[in-house]
Write a protein that binds this DNA or RNA. Structure first.
Length: 929
DNA sequence: TGGTTCACG
DNA sequence: GACGTACGTGAACCAG
């Protein structure tokens, strides 16, 4: 039949393009479906063109079946550079197949072949049968197939692509396009091509010589020396590239041509699909039978409409109430499999783990909860033991069985796992051999949207977004002495608590995820925070070794010295008292001994802080000196040498901190249990504690820190030419400032300049600076004025930042991280001024945090690519990373670490100052500095 | 639980 | 003229 016309839809190509062109919408289930929606409207339109002139009589959707194909056999690097698809596109892949089936259109994919190759095979077959063919795609590789009777259709641009259009775009006809593409290469697919040759040069060469082989054979004729040399050097790559871009058109057809016949719209399956997805405008067309195609954007389901646009947000109206009785306790294989199937069908599932300990390094899994729809959640107990008195061990599915079944979902690339503080759950699953991916974290979503407005714990988020307080942990497990671990909680209580957490998490995701793009937080979430989760999880699991004996020795030594000091202090005071009590100490010093000092603070107690004590000590007050020593030693002993010994994990013999990803207002990490970001270093005695942090046997520690990163960023952000030039030349920045401010550089002026430089980062005040420098306010103000005159960029930066924050209520880092500062509109002057100082500091401190986070996320892959698999990243201390590695890897690892850290802003942000990195190594952390 | 102090960047 | 006084953290301790 001469009138047959086959349409081949490049499904994979289509959804990638649709994803980037359409807004990030979600379907009725809260699963991202913007690309699916675009795809569905496109199919609808194609199918409606049945039997129109040039419309399809036969139609198939072609998909990529797997990532490895025959091209990988040819060239291992093929598509190796390709980044993984965006998280919210992943759940849409399976939906594409469902949509296609709903139209009763064949969906074709073949293992080992790319969609392009399958399309090429069908083009050949259709040509042989005398059919016309249209390829629905705008992919440049597919343009090679254009010929009489074969054209392409770009549905987004609504444009036909024939031979003329190919020549116009590429300068060569379709049959020569493969040679042009081979010379150009393709950085996305990692087709190497020939360096220095882009589309223009490639077209010119092919126009002149006809194909790649002839170009290579005629290389002596080429005039441009660089081009000639590049062709000689990369001839092998050119030949391989030619083969990589050649489409394979001789594979057997997965479905015979005749089976692709289009039968028209089958309303029922399609109707079911559209209803399920909530694509209401298309549903209306199915019912009305009309085919009045309109662009998709206006016609979307209300699920993701901005909450601010409609006071009664549809999503809120649709929210079922929280109902603990509706949650299911899963204790049969049938139920488990049913939930797993539901998760896969939904493409997104909220997951939460329950354990017997808040420390996820020590904890054992007790149960897992899942939610796939608001109000629909389950709890799968696997480690409940009863309380040993009143309750027996409840019947549960075997732990190993549950974990193996759950693995299919947790590792399923098509199912998005949603967690609240997912780092915890990631560690629990990793310790059970399961790698969770892909994932989203509602805590981080909230952090990247609302930092400064609220905390990001689940209970607080649930109250803020749903007005619902979930069951509190302490209501289930109690608190203090009578607290029980979760494995002793009765199953019905456990289910209500755990399933509710998963339910809340899913609802939070549906509420927060769509805000990301609207509020321009996608960049910081995707480029900075989300990638960090598994990286930090690895660091926490790695831990760091500490020398217990050394700590114990220090504790003993400190105890002796503290006891001696205590005796001396009591003697000087004329009687025993509690030195650690600021109240008692103040009374002893200022009332009993009559030393001068004033009341301070709302509570009416004397201030006895370092400044006050040092003032006294300088006046020769002996007791003050001894109190200062006593305090330092007490602090070191109680906070470090004693506490750290207790924190050593018996199983690993190491200390495993927990890094909080969503606490600091500025984007920094923080460290708890124990805090390893405040280990002493500033005093000699304190530094001895750092020496107790040691490398494992056969390893060394390496410390890499950014030098003056915040000042460098300030120089960049405020655009200060002298400071930028000084950093570029590696000059002493405080000396330069001293020269600018005081006209001469010596110890004193350099020290003052350093203080002023730092005060700028913190949002300077004359009073504060005066206090630090020991000068009067007028003098401090004069220095500030002089600083602004020498570096007017700083004054402008501060002025612009304050204008912006008063207008918007937040400030941003170079990567777009927001810190909200509601205090900027406070009626209280003090609060306003505090917010102003934060506004000056947060973009600088936050950009620094963004940069080191990016370095951390890239470090693992970079080290692996260099064959340095034994190098482990252990700690982050704001501008420093600590690694443990075999001594023979030090040189190679240093180079990689330095390169990754120095280049961490790029390419998203280009800095006008270099980032300096200082590296040291040693057996201990102290020695590595 | 809040206030104070002090360890770090 | 009064106000409050440098940014960001976490832990230990005391006292109520």
């Amino acid at each position: 039949m001469a009138s047959n016309h086959l349409y081949l839809v490049d499904g994979s190509g289509y959804i990638f393009r649709a994803y980037h062109r359409l807004p990030p919408l979600t379907n009725r289930h809260g699963v991202p479906a913007g690309a699916v929606y675009g795809f569905t409207t496109m199919l609808w339109k194609l199918v409606n063109d049945l039997h129109k002139a040039d419309g399809p009589t036969h139609l198939a959707v072609i998909l990529d079946a797997s990532s490895r194909t025959f091209r990988n056999e040819m060239y291992d690097g093929y598509k190796a550079n390709r980044p993984p698809p965006p998280e919210d596109l992943i759940p849409q892949f399976p939906l594409i197949r469902v949509a296609t089936r709903a139209f009763s259109v064949p969906c074709i994919e073949t293992e080992g072949l790319e969609a392009d190759d399958i399309i090429a095979c069908y083009v050949e077959a259709a040509q042989a049968a005398g059919w016309a063919t249209t390829i629905v795609s705008s992919d440049k590789d597919l343009m090679q197939l254009v010929r009489p009777g074969v054209d392409m259709l770009d549905t987004m641009a609504n444009k036909r692509i024939g031979r003329e259009e190919v020549i116009e775009k590429w300068g060569v006809p379709p049959e020569q396009l493969g040679d042009v593409l081979a010379l150009m290469g393709d950085s996305v697919d990692n087709v190497p091509g020939v360096p220095g040759i882009g589309p223009k040069t490639a077209a010119q060469l092919i126009q002149q010589y006809g194909d790649v082989e002839t170009v290579l054979a005629s290389v002596e004729e080429i005039r441009k020396p660089k081009l000639k040399q590049s062709l000689i050097d990369h001839a092998a790559n050119a030949r391989m590239s030619r083969e990589l871009v050649r489409l394979k058109c001789d594979a057997p057809l997965p479905e015979p041509l005749d089976d692709l016949a289009l039968k028209g719209l089958p309303p029922e399956p399609l109707r079911a699909f559209l209803e399920d997805q909530g694509f209401k405008s298309l549903l209306l067309k199915v019912d009305g039978g009309g085919n009045d195609y309109r662009p998709p954007a206006a016609a979307l389901p209300p699920v993701t409409a901005p909450a601010t646009a409609r006071p009664a947000a549809p999503e809120a109206a649709e929210q079922p109430a929280f109902d603990h009785a509706a949650y299911e306790t899963v204790v049969t294989e049938e139920a488990l499999d049913r939930w797993i199937a539901a998760a896969i069908a939904a493409g997104a599932v909220a997951v939460d783990t329950e354990t017997d300990d808040i420390d996820c390094i020590r904890a054992e899994l007790v149960g897992i909860s899942l939610s796939v729809d608001p109000g629909r959640a389950c709890y799968i107990p696997i480690g409940h033991r009863g309380d040993g008195l009143l309750s027996e061990v409840p019947p549960q599915l075997p732990r190993a069985l549950v974990l193996e079944r759950l693995r299919t979902v947790l590792e399923h690339p098509g199912v998005l796992k949603i967690g609240q503080n997912l780092k915890y759950d990631l560690i629990m699953f990793r310790r059970n051999g399961i790698d969770v991916a892909p994932y989203d974290d509602t805590m981080l979503l909230s952090y990247d949207l609302d930092a400064g407005l609220r905390g990001h714990g689940m209970d607080e988020l649930s109250v803020a977004h749903f007005g619902h307080a979930p069951i509190a942990f302490k209501d289930v497990c109690g608190t203090g002495k009578s607290q029980i671990s979760f494995d002793k909680v009765q199953l019905d209580r456990a289910t209500a608590y755990a399933a509710e957490d998963a339910d809340v998490t899913l609802r939070l995701w549906r509420k927060l995820k769509p805000r990301l793009a609207r509020e321009e937080a996608t960049r910081v979430y995707e480029l900075v925070d989300r990638p960090l989760v598994p990286v930090v999880a690895e660091m926490e699991m790695a831990g760091i070794r500490v020398d217990r004996e050394e700590l114990a020795r220090l504790s003993g030594e400190f105890a002796t010295r503290i006891a001696v000091l205590e005796g001396e202090i009591h003697a000087l005071a004329g009687g025993p008292f509690t030195i650690g009590s600021p109240k008692q100490l103040g009374e002893v010093l200022f009332d009993r001994l009559g030393l001068k000092g004033g009341r301070k603070g709302k509570s009416g107690v004397y201030s006895t802080d370092v400044n006050e004590m040092e003032r006294l000590a300088e006046d020769g007050v002996e007791i003050a000196t001894k109190v200062l020593d006593w305090r330092q030693l007490s602090k070191l002993k109680s906070t470090y040498t004693d506490a750290l010994q207790a924190q050593i994990n018996p199983a690993s013999g190491r200390v495993h901190t927990s890094f909080s990803l969503a606490v600091a207002q500025t984007g920094r990490l923080s460290s708890t249990d124990p805090n390893l970001q405040n280990i002493p270093i500033r005093t000699d005695i304190g530094r001895r504690i750092r020496d107790a942090f040691v490398a494992d046997k056969g390893y060394v520690l390496l410390s890499a820190d950014y030098s003056q990163i915040e000042l460098r960023l300030a120089a960049h952000m405020a655009d200060v030419p002298q400071l930028k030039a000084a950093f570029a030349d590696g000059q002493d920045i405080h000396a330069l400032t001293a020269q600018e401010l005081f006209g001469e550089v010596n110890r004193d002026t350099r020290g003052r300049a350093k203080t002023i430089n730092f005060s700028i980062l913190y949002g300077i005040s004359a009073f504060g600076l005066a206090g630090r420098l020991g000068v009067d306010r007028a003098e401090a103000q004069a220095m500030i004025n002089r600083y602004f005159d020498r570096f007017p960029g700083i004054r402008d930066y501060i002025a612009e930042t304050l204008t912006a924050v008063r207008d918007k209520g937040y400030v941003t880092t170079l990567f777009g991280r927001k810190t909200h500062l509601p205090g900027i509109r406070s009626a209280k002057q003090g609060e306003r001024q505090a917010a102003e100082r934060q506004a000056i500091n947060a973009p600088i401190q936050g950009t620094s945090a963004d940069i080191i986070k990016r370095a951390m996320a890239r470090m693992g892959p970079a080290l692996n690519a260099a064959g340095l698999e034994q190098v482990r990243m252990l700690l982050q201390v704001h501008d420093e990373l600590v690694f443990e590695l075999p001594p023979e890897d030090v040189d190679a690892a240093s180079a990689v670490i330095r390169a990754v850290m120095a280049g961490a802003a790029e390419p998203a942000v280009r800095l006008s100052v270099p980032l300096g990195v200082e590296i040291g190594t040693g057996q201990s952390w102290g020695a590595a500095h």
